[in-house]
Simulated scan of single mutants.
Amino acid sequence: MNNVIVVGCGRVGSRLANMLSDNGNNVCVIDRKVEAFANLGRNFNGSTVQGVGFDEETLVKAGIEDCDVLAAVTQFDNANLMVAEVGSRLFDVPHVIARLYNPDHERAYMQLGLDYVCGTSLVAEDIFSKVVSGHGAHLDTFGDFEVLRFSLSLSCLDRHSIRVADLEREHDVRIIAFERGDGSASSIPSRDSILYNGDLVLACVRHELIPAFSKYIQD
C-alpha cells in the first residue's frame, strides 16, 4: 500500500485517483478548484485538499512528508514540472511522475531525470501501472502494451504457485522471463513453467488490463 498524492482532478487525475484508491492505496487529491473534486464521484475513498499543487504548505497539508508517490497530472506542463521539482528536490518523494502534454518539452523532462507519461489517451492507466508495479518496475511502453518487472503475489489465490499458461490465458498477458524469489535460478518460461509466490517476473500486459492484473503485483 502506497501513500499517493495526485495533483490535478480533471478527467485523468480523478480516474487515476479512483484506480489507486480501489487498489488499496491511501490517496489525497489536490486541485485549485474545489468544484473539480466532483469528478471523483461519491465512491472515492480518499481525501482532498484545495490549493496550488506546487505550494509547499498545500503539499504538507496533503501529507507529502509521508508520501511514497507524487503524480502531477494537471493540464499544464509547466505546473506539472514545478510540482515534480518541489516533490523530488524539497521533500525527497521516492517516486515522482509527471504528465507531459507537449512533446517539445520532453527533452527538459529527460534532462531533469523525471519519470513522465506523454500522451493524451490512457494516461491514467500508464501512471497507475508505474505506481502499482513500483519505482523502476515499469520498463517500457509498446503501443497498447506495458512491459513490467515485479515480484509476483499469489495472495489472491488459494495456492502458492501457478502455471505460466494458466496465468497468461486467464489474464491475456505474456510472461517474458522470471527469476526465483531467492535468486537461485532464472529462465525464459515455457507454457508449463511454474511460477511461485515472490518470483521476480518480467511480463507484457495490455494497458487496459493492468488494473485487474495488479492483484498479482506485490506492493
Rank of each mutant, 00 (worst) to 15 (best):
N2P: 08
V4Y: 11
V4P: 08
I5W: 12
V6C: 10
V7S: 10
C9K: 02
G13D: 01
S14P: 04
M19L: 15
L20W: 09
L20R: 03
L20S: 05
S21F: 01
N25V: 00
N26H: 12
V29D: 11
R32V: 13
V34E: 15
A36N: 14
N39W: 05
G41I: 03
R42E: 14
N43G: 05
F44Q: 00
F44W: 00
N45L: 15
T48I: 14
T48H: 01
V49P: 03
G53D: 02
F54T: 03
E56P: 04
T58P: 02
T58W: 08
K61A: 14
A62F: 05
G63M: 02
E65I: 02
E65L: 06
D68N: 11
V73A: 11
T74E: 01
F76A: 06
N78Q: 13
A84H: 12
V86W: 02
S88T: 08
S88Q: 15
L90M: 06
L90S: 10
F91D: 01
V93K: 03
A98S: 13
H105V: 12
A108K: 11
L112V: 09
L114N: 07
D115C: 13
Y116H: 09
Y116F: 14
Y116V: 04
V117R: 15
C118I: 13
L122S: 12
E125L: 12
I127N: 02
V131D: 00
V132F: 04
G136N: 09
A137E: 08
A137R: 07
H138Q: 03
L139A: 09
L139S: 01
F145D: 09
V147Y: 01
V147C: 00
S153M: 12
S153D: 15
H160R: 05
S161L: 04
I162Q: 11
I162H: 13
V164Q: 06
D166V: 13
H171E: 07
H171C: 02
D172V: 10
I175D: 00
I176Y: 03
I176M: 13
A177V: 03
F178I: 00
E179F: 08
G183V: 00
A185S: 07
S186G: 12
I188C: 11
I188Y: 01
P189Q: 05
D199M: 10
L200V: 04
V201W: 00
A203T: 07
A203I: 04
V205I: 01
P211V: 01
A212E: 13
K215Q: 15
Y216V: 05
